[in-house]
């Protein structure tokens, strides 16, 4: 099962990296959206420093949503999803592999770009490491919840528009603790408790979200 899951992951990574459009779109959206804020709220360094962590986090979540609706869609259309369902990976394994591929092609690049945006938004330099660590733990949660949303809206009318409505309420806790970790570092309180809660959320989502996504995928195969 693990081998088959890794095979699906390798295939999706190869597909994702060969058509880098998704990756470029997500990172581009992230950068442009985050850098709209200095124009929207004004360029005062104090105001930007105050909102930087939240802006980076929120725009990263939105950028991560962009490619979610295509997580299962192409495979469902050309019939490979039926084959994958029969593979030893099982639908839960497929969901894990797809979420992992989504994270590596979308979440990880967003984490790598985030320090540049944080500096441009005048975030306290001491908090930048915490920002990256919190996003490193938090963005996989988005990919896992996103797998649920993508699986449930498979074949739905306006599925792409539905995914944010379904997923964003569920990632509110991730956002709260992710931003709280950065702000705790900036104010000198220590980010450890917030990062531990984020890690707990990831530890809960990692086994449970693929099961829910697999149940959603199963509906589309009926």
């Amino acid at each position: 099962m693990i081998q088959a899951t890794l095979a699906v992951l390798r295939r999706d990574l190869a597909l994702g990296l060969r058509q880098a459009a998704d990756l470029v779109t997500a990172v581009g959206f992230f950068a442009v959206a985050a850098l709209l804020f200095p124009f929207g709220v004004g360029p005062e360094p104090q105001i930007l420093a105050r909102i930087a962590a939240g802006v980076v986090w929120v725009t990263a979540l939105l950028a991560g949503l962009l490619s979610l609706d295509r997580m299962f869609q192409p495979d469902a259309v050309d019939g490979s999803l039926d084959q994958l369902a029969l593979s030893p990976a099982g639908l839960a394994g497929v969901a894990v592999a797809k979420a992992a591929a989504h994270w590596i092609t979308t979440g990880l690049p967003l984490v790598l770009v985030s320090p540049v945006l944080a500096i441009m938004l005048n975030l306290d330099p001491a908090a930048i490491t915490t920002l990256m660590v919190s996003m490193l733990i938090g963005t996989p949660c988005l990919s896992l919840f996103g797998a649920i949303g993508a699986a449930l809206t498979l074949g739905a009318r306006r599925g792409a528009a539905l995914v944010p409505l379904l997923i964003l309420p569920l990632v509110v806790p991730v956002l709260i603790f992710g931003v709280a970790a950065v702000e705790a570092t900036a104010t000198g309180l220590g980010a450890r408790p917030h990062l531990m809660i984020l890690a707990a959320l990831l530890a809960a989502a990692l086994p449970l979200a693929p099961l829910a996504a697999a149940a959603g995928l199963k509906l589309s195969l009926d």
Binding site: L152, T153, G155, A156, R157, R158, G159, L162, A212, L219
Partner: peptide, 14 residues
């Protein structure tokens, strides 16, 4: 969101 209401009901149930 689905043409088949039963499918929509099950997806929403999850």
């Amino acid at each position: 969101a689905f043409d088949d209401p039963e499918r929509g009901g099950r997806a929403a149930g999850i």
